[in-house]
Amino acid sequence: MSDAIIEVENLTIGFGEGKNRIAAVKGVDFTVTEGENFGLVGESGCGKSTILRALAGLNEDWSGRIRLCGRDMDKKRPRALRRLAQMVFQDPFGSLHPKHTVDRILSEPLEIHGMDDVEGRVRLALDQVQLEPVHRFRYPHQMSGGQRQRVAIARALILQPKVILLDEPTSALDVSIQAEVLNLLQDLGQQMGLTYVLVSHDLGVVAHMCRRLAIMRQGEIVETAMAEELERGKLVHPYSRQLLVASRGYDRNAIDAFLDH
């Protein structure tokens, strides 16, 4: 397909050396077309965030093939290509420098990448994430969790990436704030023609945001499904079915039937 924006082939990622090496991702393949939001779902330790970090160029210890926008990515990624995919992290309390103002948080990536019109771009980014000009000279601790996550989204957008990698972007937020942030992400995606890869343990969030999703377990993709199939409960693999049942709430009888995967 020519409109594939992300192509991943036989991606393998491990941690540690020699006999202590643990394979976190084991030969994963997937393709994401432009504008199609793709979800990676699974429980902690399944490798979903590890894939995201490799896509972002934050982990250089991988093998296989990663293509972004039709270009092969080397393990050492040059600065110009790092701009293509930007990441939004889970914890807005940990991912923003506590002693930098929002202004500095947003202008630093622009300076690193030698982009012009810092003033205009910072203002535009704040406007895009619906923050007020007064927020520009605040510190992260002077803002709420939802506002902080908006700053993190603005920081990702400011380099005009093609792909935004979202690692549990709303799991630290209250549901009412989650709804606002997810609506904002949807609007931005449409306005700016972005492609999202969303990592989450919350099937509801993934079903809402993504057109297609992959369910992962122990470093492997066990099933890929369309969001409509998830909505109609048409998952095939026993592990994905168990995940779906668990996501529906507390059901005594279902729990007794759970297998420890």
Partner: peptide
């Protein structure tokens, strides 16, 4: 507010 698996909506309701 929260998105539902079985019932997808265009936009989420905001409080």
């Amino acid at each position: 507010c929260p998105p539902e698996i079985d019932h997808r909506r265009e936009r989420l309701t905001v409080l």
